[in-house]
Design a protein around this nucleic acid. Structure first.
Lengths: 124, 124
DNA sequence: ACTGGTGTATTATACCACTAATACACGAGA
DNA sequence: TCTCGTGTATTAGTGGTATAATACACCAGT
């Protein structure tokens, strides 16, 4: 059963997006693999103190994104093939880095300075 | 008169935030300095094809953040002291990098890999 | 069979951020 | 004085998000 006990919800992004993003991270970290079962809608809702419909929205989104399957009322499961995994990996790594690079260039931050700042801020 | 002709509005972030962010970038790039006049609310609204109130909200935000002043109906002007400048610089550099570092760590991206990705994505 | 938990769907409501529409008072300039 | 553009304030509309209350069909376990 996939563990949601260490998810931390902020109050900035939509909850259902955060749930999806959390599961993607778990997949990337190999903490979630094909076959792993997700909690039931109502169960996760109770755990996170949110409405079951919000969980349903998250699960539906993850189904559409292709890494969660649900059959009948037998619960929902993680399901990732190589293609989906690559997509997730790309979004969470290259995608994120690319956005950052774009922001850095917008303010004319030179490459060297970027490396400096990351090095400086990495450990703290 | 501060130039907004090369601002590019996305449809993800609130417009008034984007305007404020754009002005901050201009300040950081020394393209906007104390005394520079901003277009009137209606003028900028017309230029960007948005509602004057959205511009008003942006200007008000920038006043509150401390780098824009307005007296009566004599227009709005850039006004930055060292303190404000440092704040903007920090937000747009260290602040941005810190957020990125946080995201990278969330998915266990090692420092080395981060540098690799940035190097790879810097030129394209 | 009955019960309880499941996924799913529908409808309604509330809330908030954002944007839009409008009106108002002020002051410079012709 | 009249006009026009200014900043400002108020109100209304819109869309997305979250919640709530149900309802339904399905299946497993008792």
């Amino acid at each position: 059963m996939l563990d949601f006990s260490d998810i931390h919800l902020n109050n900035k992004d939509p909850v259902y997006i955060q749930i999806s993003h959390y599961v993607k991270r778990q997949i990337l970290l190999k903490k979630a693999v094909s076959g792993d079962e997700l909690p039931s809608r109502r169960e996760l809702a109770a755990l996170l103190n949110i409405n079951p419909n919000t969980v349903q929205k998250a699960y539906k989104l993850m189904e559409q994104e292709g890494f969660v399957i649900t059959h009948g009322n037998q619960g929902s499961f993680i399901w990732v093939n190589d293609c989906i995994y690559s997509k997730i990996e790309d979004e969470l790594t290259r995608g994120m880095v690319a956005e950052f690079v774009k922001s850095a260039k917008e303010i004319n931050l030179p490459f060297k300075r970027v490396i400096e700042l990351i090095t400086e801020l990495w450990d703290e």
